[in-house]
Design a protein around this nucleic acid. Structure first.
Lengths: 118, 118
DNA sequence: CCTATATATATCGGCAACCGTCATATGATG
DNA sequence: CATCATATGACGGTTGCCGATATATATAGG
């Protein structure tokens, strides 16, 4: 039950499952597409993350099938995964926007310390 | 020289330095403000990350000062840190937007696999 | 026939980042 | 004198990520 923020590979996994269920290898390809080729997820990361996410109840095995003699497990985003993804997305968005504001030179939302100096 | 994506605490650190230089303890407070109280950065995370970021040349020690008998080191965002933050921000923004699109039910940008099925 | 490539799942060991805790020190407040 | 806020720092444990490796089938090429 770690409340720790999702790391990027995990975030991409949930995102890749957000539109439709996919199997492991398909997730690798989808993440490649989402990230415009910048993230090539390794199987070591993938199956470790899938196990973890299954255990946390964020995803579930929708079905198992055999296509062209090759076995597949098809994973789907569970409702807990959907709300977690939504929450993480909102949180990340606010961090990203704050960073952009500061990079643009504008001082924003974050309160300045009370005993502030010159 | 790790090309690995920044994790959130690190991203928050750079963001907190993006408007003006700050000392360690001030960074903890600023991150608390940026995250609306949701992230209480621990000193163990802070000083480890500061050492790492210094070594990577993303931040630098601007000056050391003594205020009310307490020693401070004031850290500033280096230019490499500024461009790294900009790049990470842009990348994260695109992931966040893709996740939002999918959560909203619209299929988007990511290409569907060539040999796609029904 | 053999080999390489694409598809597909899975395990193992190592590393780096993060976190909780403890230690240290000063100044202000009660 | 104790406690809290300020302030820096070290240490050890946990965990997520990654590279490498193993297994297996289908297809294409030499």
């Amino acid at each position: 039950m770690s409340d720790r923020p999702l790391q990027e590979p995990t975030l991409l996994l949930l995102t890749a499952l957000a539109d439709e269920p996919r199997h492991g290898y398909g997730l690798i390809q989808e993440i490649d597409a989402i990230s415009h080729g910048r993230v090539r997820m390794r199987t070591g990361t993938l199956y470790g993350a899938l196990d973890r996410l299954l255990q946390q109840g964020l995803i579930e095995v929708q079905r198992e099938e055999v296509v062209d003699g090759r076995a597949r497990k098809v994973y789907a985003l569970a409702s807990a995964g959907r709300s977690t993804l939504a929450a993480e997305t909102a949180r990340l968005r606010s961090v990203v926007e704050e960073a952009e504001r500061r990079l643009a030179g504008r001082r924003a939302s974050a309160a300045r310390p009370k005993g502030a100096l010159a």
